[in-house]
Design a protein around this nucleic acid. Sequence first.
DNA 1: TTAAATTAATTAAACGATTAAATGCTTTTT
DNA 2: AAAAAGCATTTAATCGTTTAATTAATTTAA
Lengths: 344, 344
Amino acid sequence: MKDVAVDAGVSVATVSNVITGKQYVSPDVKDKVEASISKLGYQVNLIARGLKSKRTDTVGVVLPDITKMFFPNVLKGITDAAHSAQYKVNFLSSDFDFDTERQFVDYLKASYVDGIIIDTVCPKDKLEDWAKELVGEGTGISVVSLEQIMDTDIISSVLIDYEKSSMNITRHLLSLGRSRILYLGASNEFSHAYNRYKGYMSGLEEGNVPYDENLVFCVDFASMGAYDAVKDAVKRKIRFDAVQAVNDQTAIGALKALMEQGIRVPEDVAVTGFDNIFPSTLVTPQITTVDVPKYRLGKMAFTELKRLMDDEGSTPCSIYFDAPVIERQSTRKELKADWDLSLW
Amino acid sequence: MKDVAVDAGVSVATVSNVITGKQYVSPDVKDKVEASISKLGYQVNLIARGLKSKRTDTVGVVLPDITKMFFPNVLKGITDAAHSAQYKVNFLSSDFDFDTERQFVDYLKASYVDGIIIDTVCPKDKLEDWAKELVGEGTGISVVSLEQIMDTDIISSVLIDYEKSSMNITRHLLSLGRSRILYLGASNEFSHAYNRYKGYMSGLEEGNVPYDENLVFCVDFASMGAYDAVKDAVKRKIRFDAVQAVNDQTAIGALKALMEQGIRVPEDVAVTGFDNIFPSTLVTPQITTVDVPKYRLGKMAFTELKRLMDDEGSTPCSIYFDAPVIERQSTRKELKADWDLSLW
DNA sequence: TTAAATTAATTAAACGATTAAATGCTTTTT
DNA sequence: AAAAAGCATTTAATCGTTTAATTAATTTAA
């Protein structure tokens, strides 16, 4: 910048004003400066700018694992929205590890990002403490939580009603005459899992179907555990006519186990997932699931974060999206398969 | 840092030395400083550090589109390697748009990242110019190119031999007695596509199979174009007994088109893909493909970048990985299906 | 005509770290 | 005992911007 100033015969302050446009500069001086800038190929040093201005025009994004098909679309939503608002995105995967997540958040704060979007892997009983630590004392950094409520007073959330959608899945299965629904859940210490489990319970209750703890398995969010659990259930001759899985990945694991046992889907056992990731349409039969609007969640997360960042005193809020059940062949054989290639 | 210095009764330089460990500090002073740091909850300001030290311990990563299943695994490889070397990753999607890619690179340079890993979407005839611009004059920034050679003198590359692997696919089809192979390629202005196309040509030549331009379609790297192309070929009654697709996504598009026309795979038409993304195992029949080691490519890209960054004068090199053909049901009916859930 | 107000550019002080050079003690060497 | 060397810490300059305060020139108002 100093070189540009010398070349253009002005002060560095004037060069700065030309670049930021924060102060009026006469047209001829402006032209001279711009000529020098392109002549010397000058580029602003964002580090120096950030140090002085205390803004980085960057938001930090922490997601559990980008290799899980749910998250790339969320991230895309965030980055699209961010870039059209001239923001940069600093993205990190926590690898489903809470300590890693905390380290990343520390790093983001040390990097002075203007805001943070996080899909935390914090256990639900510690969510509020984590929320407070995350935002910090004083005015605090703006934060938006994805997929779960952390602390409604200090952090905005963008999510769907997991309990309701999960209950709708249970209802759907019950409406098809399936009443022995094997539930493949994840640990209830995580709110995502817990809310879906509650939905299953509510669905059973509404349908006056007795709860049978032998039908409830705690696996994780990955395929392998679901595969093992279903194999085990079959071996132990547990009777069931449906599998309600906590997400599409586990549903696919279940599907594989059933097929290997020669159990027909959906004739013998119906299978449902959750999230509507693309693979749920690729397997045969295609999997009935809940359509979670991943891209829109991401986009809204940024929009909301921007609102918080722009208005100093604005209060956080919770934004819910609709997530309808999509019926497919894994519960209704008569439906025909279709891949929506345009999404891909 | 000043507050910490005052609290501990030392100078800021001493605090800095405690934090960075670059100069010896006596144990008792060190203890005092560390006590003050945790008492005040002090965290280093990475922006200020970066400004002074001219290092950010951050690498920039530019990939075409994180929602395409190929890239999350690459990114994971990069971030895993980077994090274990105490580096941060600043990731961006170019959205397959060259202008966007350039803007991101400018941003990364302005942010003074220590190195860049890029999977460029630059057309192949402009690769060398882009390489020079990317690295810049003088000593220049360290750069590693993924999936293609840019300029062997100034940029290291981590990739596979696309031509060879593509040729191996063609050989595989020919060995199965298929000689009318429909080729679903992408625009040859991109090196990825061009090299695979060359492999197809070499394979035909080796097998003494005449080249028929009616069998070559230029689509893109997405599913929809492939779907349309195959439908069109069938409608025009073009005779073919195999489809060699430029990647797994296009192979899946082709598969859908064939199935809708009642054409049996592989009995009537064999289908092959490229990349071995997870969905290639989910469809029925599973797709024969080339196993590109995505995670390892990413990991090696970082390792190589680190080598370049650490040794000032080290010369760039090209690192090739092996990418064998994986035979599956879409070319060999007798193989049984299996989903490797552990990968997911 | 002079003072006041406006305008356009400059000066210089931050921002919060790092780091080479300087300082004031000890300890060692001669 | 004096000089040299070693050690632990401090001083102060610096990184490249932004920006409040200032200056100098010009215009407007009284």
